[in-house]
Design a protein around this nucleic acid. Structure first.
Lengths: 163, 163
DNA sequence: CCTTAACTTCACAAATTTCTGAAAGAAGCG
DNA sequence: CGCTTCTTTCAGAAATTTGTGAAGTTAAGG
């Protein structure tokens, strides 16, 4: 069943393309950005490969590549409808929470590189000191982000008691 | 005066390239990433165009493009040494604070796109509800990020009393 | 098992991005 | 004012990325 039926496809498309453009500007590749935006704007929160391909005018191969990337970075999850070979790609309500939590993996690698830098340039040198301070900043961010997400869960429950 | 003199250029270069690679993976363009990493790893915290060009093996044009971008997103600042036409590009100790604050501009544009989406898809629809929840998340993040940066300033003063 | 629907992989064409050399543009200094 | 030094702009070559068609793989359903 098409998720788009009964809605203004143009309004949907307009939002999808605009929001995707912002995601692209923030560093996401074009096609994953469009797929993610389309899911976000769907009523059911889940679309099949065919639906995505039709709505976004992209080939099955394009959809495949985009969802592979998005699922790697935990921005969507795949589900198989039982007794069908159709896959559905879904955004969850805590998807952003997931995505941000995933950012921590990136921060961890930055921290590794910085620790190496402090060691090889020397903790006593001005440059070493700068790297150490940068490292401390990321360690702070990492810890504080976790707490921030906890605060969001609380706030979310307040704003959307039934969500 | 070369900032690199008296240090192991190989150790510096190794850190610069590794850290830059992480920044690239996070979405920054290659050359801005390398320039930023080189500044971070310099003892003085500031390098001239010629020094950057030599250390990174890139042309003056490359340096120019990279620093233009980095200064736009507030990841470095330019200074003119008085009585010289040489420019120095500097990272400040609160540079990451600046960069994150700048991210808020991006979040603001996401929020605009989402508000439009809620309006055009209808606040009462499931999709509209999802967009509204996403919007609320970003509004929360935006406010909380500011407080987080304030907490960092406090923490930083504790860790580096003389910084 | 065989058919068939769905997804994935792969090689390639097209579009985009990146980086450079060359030329033009500022700005200090005599 | 003209020389010199440094930076920026710009057109284009080179490299990378993107998205597709076509072939290949998997698994449901007879």
């Amino acid at each position: 069943m098409s998720d788009v039926a009964g809605r203004d496809p143009e309004a949907v498309s307009r939002f999808v393309e605009r929001f995707a453009a912002q995601l692209v500007e923030a560093g996401l590749a074009r096609m994953p950005a469009r797929v993610f935006a389309a899911l976000l704007a769907s009523d059911s929160g889940a679309l099949t490969s065919a639906e995505l391909g039709e709505q976004l005018q992209i080939s099955p191969a394009g959809v495949s590549g985009a969802v592979r990337y998005l699922s790697q970075v935990h921005m969507l999850s795949r589900e198989r409808e039982p007794g069908s070979r159709r896959e559905r790609y879904r955004v969850h309500s805590d998807q952003w929470y997931q995505a941000i939590t995933n950012r921590e993996a990136i921060i961890k690698r930055w921290e590794d590189a910085l620790r190496e830098g402090v060691a090889s340039l020397g903790a006593g040198t001005p440059a070493g000191h700068r790297l150490a301070e940068t490292l401390a900043f990321f360690e702070f961010i990492e810890k504080d982000l976790v707490e921030m997400m906890e605060r969001w869960q609380v706030r979310r429950a307040e704003l959307f008691p039934d969500g």
